[in-house]
Design a protein around this nucleic acid. Structure first.
Length: 226
DNA sequence: TTGCCGATCTTCT
DNA sequence: GAAGATCGGCAAA
């Protein structure tokens, strides 16, 4: 059974730490891949300068302004997808970004997706020789989406329905029978330039699948020499 | 192991 | 026109 919608109908900063240990599943014709969430970040909608919803509703972020328990999938840096779960009530536009997880089902399929043709790689280039370590399969928000084959077609998907291809279940049986608060660490969010002071990134302390923290660094423009 | 760099496109100024 | 909730490859240390 997926998590109830009431679970998500709360402030994102409250939902986020409780999502750790929950399992995100995506079922496709190729099979099922599931990850146990190990790292998340909360975004407080229009009140949060780091949120995509800060400047109001656009076509891209429209799902954030809808009911809780739905997936907000966005495309960024010209090649990556990231997935959020909408929280609180309608129009609050708050959400939790899923940053990393440990693959608990469909590892072979996840590895095949992650080892496939990469962005920027030309057809005909040599295929990957290295076998990805299990802990790296969903280590990072864009990698998590690639391992689960999540793209904009899943934008708005209801993760509270058992019949949905994308859904969230409670903590995995046996994996972490109890999630203890002392296992959860928090700190500033990754890669945000504004709103970096609030400790709304949550992760399992010491977990190898957690992505490395990187402070925001503005990109340098390419110099064009005449 | 760390750090730079390019890829590539949507959104906002 | 510029920046961005990123990643993987490669060079240097």
């Amino acid at each position: 059974m997926p998590i109830s919608r009431d679970f998500f109908a709360r402030p994102a900063a409250e939902v986020a730490p409780e999502l750790l240990g929950c399992v995100l599943e995506h079922e496709t014709v190729a099979g099922l891949v599931a990850v146990e969430l190990t790292e998340v970040e909360a975004y407080a909608g229009q009140a949060d300068p780091a949120s995509h919803a800060y400047r109001g509703q656009t076509r891209r972020n429209a799902v954030m302004f809808g009911p809780p328990g739905h997936a907000y999938v966005y495309f960024t840096y010209g090649m990556h997808f990231c997935v959020n779960l909408v929280c609180q009530g309608e129009d609050s536009a708050s959400a939790v970004l899923l940053r990393a997880g440990a693959v608990v089902a469909g590892e072979d399929l996840a590895r095949a997706r992650r080892s496939g043709r990469k962005p920027g790689r030309k057809p005909g280039d040599a295929p990957d020789q290295v076998r990805l370590a299990s802990r790296n399969l969903a280590r990072g928000p864009a990698r998590l989406c690639r391992a689960l084959d999540i793209d904009r077609s899943l934008d708005g998907a209801d993760v509270c329905l058992a019949s949905s291809p994308l859904r969230v279940r409670g903590p995995a049986q046996g994996a972490r029978t109890t999630v203890r608060s002392e296992d959860i660490a928090c700190g500033p969010r990754v890669g945000v330039s504004r709103g970096a002071e609030v400790p709304w990134r949550f992760w399992f302390a010491g977990d190898p699948t957690v992505s490395a923290y990187r402070p925001h660094v503005p990109r340098q423009r390419k110099l064009v020499t005449p």
